[in-house]
């Protein structure tokens, strides 16, 4: 039947290339490092039949997970990822909200152009946008040259390869994800609400806090999750802009895999990272659902 074929093709594709690979990660995270190819043990030996399968399962253990809690590198990296994501999300909100607000309050005929200007960077290479800051933040970079020319500083500031550079990079690259949902929620808002508030005696400022801010809450929450969730696993930004002290789990996983070639530990790191991500993802979905229900 056609309907079954229609369902099966994408279904099997995703099973084979999404679910099965993830099951393999889970399985290797329970295996041990070995000096072989592939570099882990046990290997499933189907030729040995039932005995082989039993032997295989009896050799799986949680050793790698215990290792993750013992070596402080890992839990520090998780904590540091969460901390960096949290601070970077707050900073992005701080920059993004006024922009979204300014766009939503801009003259009607300007809005499509402003919207395009926000979306345009999204289509350009992520890597290049991060790279652009390397030349700016370097010790002899454009920013330091400019500041010294102004006479604000006499010594060049060290920004590149610090957490500050990582924050700048994250705010810069994830800004559209914050602006768009906030803009959408502000744009939906009926302008007569503000006029009504002022008519009832609010000052402009209190009208913002009492009307605009609560009504854009859903957009703010959505924007924050859209930044927070992907930043936790971020790899490119800490690698290019961060220094040796910048600890983020995406980078740890990469190094564990490519430099240390410890696949079982890398897999365990991945599984724990996913477990950490599940909480914000569920919260995000709940927020989206609430918004959909509110819209009827």
């Amino acid at each position: 039947m056609r309907r079954i074929a229609l369902i099966l093709v994408p279904y099997l594709w995703l099973l084979a290339l999404f679910l099965v690979p993830f099951a393999i990660v889970l399985k290797i995270s329970l295996s041990d490092l070995a000096m072989s190819i592939p570099p882990y043990t046990p290997q499933l030996d189907l030729a040995a039949g039932w005995e082989g399968i039993k032997a295989f399962f009896s050799q799986l253990d949680l050793e790698n997970y215990i290792w993750l809690t013992q070596d402080e590198l890992y839990w520090k990296a998780y904590l540091s990822s969460l901390k960096i994501s949290l601070i970077a999300t707050a900073l992005t909100l701080l920059v993004g909200y006024p922009m979204a607000y300014g766009m939503a309050r801009a003259p009607e005929e300007w809005r499509p152009m402003l919207l395009m200007l926000v979306i345009l960077p999204f289509w350009t290479s992520f890597l290049i946008r991060v790279y652009a800051w390397m030349g700016i933040l370097a010790k002899e970079g454009v920013l330091n040259q400019f500041l010294m020319w102004l006479g604000v500083v006499s010594e060049p500031l060290v920004i590149l390869n610090t957490n500050i550079a990582v924050y700048i990079g994250i705010v810069y690259t994830y800004l559209p994800f914050m602006i768009l949902p906030i803009y959408a929620s502000l744009d939906r808002m009926d302008n007569s609400l503000l006029e009504a508030a002022e008519d009832l005696g609010c000052s402009r400022f209190s009208a913002f806090w009492l009307i605009t801010a609560p009504l854009s809450k859903q957009g703010v929450i959505a924007g924050c999750f859209l930044v927070f969730i992907p930043v936790i696993g971020e790899f490119v930004i800490p690698s290019l802009l961060g220094g040796s002290k910048t600890l983020m789990i995406g980078k740890v996983l990469w190094d564990e895999f490519f430099s240390n070639r410890d696949w079982p530990v890398a897999s365990a790191v991945a599984v724990v990272l996913l477990l950490i991500l599940i909480i914000p993802i569920i919260l995000f979905q709940r927020n989206e659902q609430k918004q959909r229900e509110a819209e009827g």
């Binding site: 690979p21 990660v25 969730i229 696993g233 996983l253 991945a270 990272l273 996913l274």
Partner: peptide, 10 residues
């Protein structure tokens, strides 16, 4: 929502 490092690794 899957981090790219995990998708790539798996």
């Amino acid at each position: 929502v899957m981090p790219e490092v995990i998708t790539g690794l798996s």
